[in-house]
């Protein structure tokens, strides 16, 4: 039997309305009172995923597994939700793996030339400010472009490797990565 409480109602309403921060707080308050409520725990995890806290989402997977393994019987709706969570975890874990791989210093040696060398991957957004400026190609200094003025664009920080793009237009060439790019694309 799923424990119901006004806090849980509030959490679900917030989740439905995509106010994930509010939903997380309410689910946590509910779980403080009902720590064995697996459905609420899984929904909390999903809110974290949708709020871009993949690590917490994956961590909750372990907690939920322990609770489910302790159940004498798993109701059909919970089994379905758990299967969905597991499927998402496998695919999200791949993301975590990519970020982890990119954080390895060895990846930097994949740069094909000094001009393409990578800044150390930032593990999180807070590390952006610490990311060294990208070394610039020969000739840059002559043009008044100095390394300390330029950093990888913010989109490519936070664990995502900066990469050169090859722009053209929609019907001829496209925008694509350097063909020599040999970065950490996950293998399946």
């Amino acid at each position: 039997m799923e424990p119901r409480s006004p806090t849980l109602e509030r959490a679900e309403q917030a989740m439905k309305a995509r106010r994930f921060g509010e939903a997380i707080a309410a689910f946590e308050a509910h779980l403080a009172e009902w720590p064995d409520d697996v459905r609420a725990l899984l929904r909390l995890g999903l809110c974290h995923l949708l709020d871009r806290s993949e690590e917490t989402f994956v961590a909750i997977h372990g907690r939920a597994r322990a609770l489910i393994e302790g159940l004498r019987e798993v109701p059909a709706d919970l089994a379905r939700l758990w299967a969905h969570y597991q499927q998402l975890t496998r695919k999200v874990s791949a993301t975590a793996l990519v970020v982890g791989v990119m954080a390895l210093p060895a990846c930097q040696s994949q740069a094909r030339a000094p001009a393409k060398s990578l800044p150390p991957a930032a593990a999180d957004a807070s590390a952006v400010a610490a990311t060294p400026a990208k070394p610039l190609p020969p000739g840059a200094a002559d043009a008044g472009v100095t390394a300390d003025r330029w950093r990888p664009h913010v989109k490519y920080s936070g664990g995502v490797r900066p990469h050169p793009i090859r722009p053209s237009h929609r019907y001829s060439g496209g925008v694509y990565m350097d063909p020599d790019f040999n970065g950490p694309i996950p293998e399946f």
Binding site: K134, V145, P152, H153, V154, P164, R166, P167
Partner: peptide, 16 residues
């Protein structure tokens, strides 16, 4: 064809 997307001193993306 290769372009680097960098962030300039003003924080805006720049294409070199």
């Amino acid at each position: 064809d290769t372009i680097d997307v960098l962030t300039g001193p003003d924080g805006e993306p720049r294409y070199l």
